[in-house]
């Protein structure tokens, strides 16, 4: 009975995600601070951007789908990074790498779950799948062994976890603040980029 319910539940979730006519919908506007970490944090500076989202409200159930998109204009932390190569295992060859352009476009889609609510406050967590692309221009050269210039696009994919708190001002408007941790795999230049982002936003609920 429970297994059947779970199976049906999965189908219902899928149907629910696809059927945007059920329940109240929200549009969100979220300015946030994007902070690269790890190796990505060595290369790129933190930046600010805006995320526009569309989601269901938590009015009827605790699980809601959400979609959002955002654009990031990343700036490198150095004009030239002192890269190097190694010849024959011992000779170090000097080089340099520089980024002229690094734009990230992300489309996020996932689910949020309302863990706890009290009166007008709610605490939720979520997970999203990220797809998108980058527009990059960079040069990479190491004496005698590499000379590379790239200017073009590449695709990216990743995952994001979020945690947030929401406050309903009234039936239409609510505020939220959340923190996210994400990882994206970029195909050119190939890299696994980790980051945190922190934002506050406003939602408008409509029928």
């Amino acid at each position: 009975m429970i297994k059947k319910a779970k199976y049906k539940g999965f189908l219902l979730i899928l149907f629910y995600m696809l059927n945007l006519q059920n329940g109240f919908s929200q549009i969100s506007f979220r300015p946030y601070n994007y902070r690269p970490t790890g190796d990505f944090g060595y290369v790129m500076k933190p930046t600010f951007s805006i995320e526009i989202g569309y989601m269901k409200s938590f009015v009827y159930e605790r699980l809601r789908p959400n979609f959002s998109l955002t654009l990031l204009d990343m700036k490198p932390r150095m004009d030239e990074f002192p890269v190097y190569g190694v010849l024959n295992g011992t000779t170090v060859l000097p080089g340099k790498q520089s980024f002229q352009k690094y734009f990230i476009f992300q489309l996020n889609a996932g689910m949020d779950y309302l863990f706890w609510e009290k009166e007008k406050f709610g605490f939720y967590g979520g997970a999203q799948v990220i797809i998108g692309g980058v527009n990059v221009s960079y040069t990479d050269q190491i004496e005698t062994i590499r000379q590379m210039d790239y200017d073009g696009g590449a695709i990216l994919g990743g995952l994001r976890l979020s945690t947030g708190i929401e406050y309903d001002l009234n039936d239409q408007i609510s505020f939220f603040a959340n923190a996210c941790r994400s990882v994206i795999l970029v195909t050119e230049p190939t890299s696994l980029n980790w980051s945190n982002d922190y934002g506050i936003g406003i939602c408008y609920t409509f029928d």
Binding site: I2, A5, G9, L12, Y60
Partner: peptide, 11 residues
């Protein structure tokens, strides 16, 4: 009812 069950099981 289905959604209620989902909530209980999945939470």
């Amino acid at each position: 009812f289905a959604i209620h069950l989902i909530n209980l099981t999945m939470k």
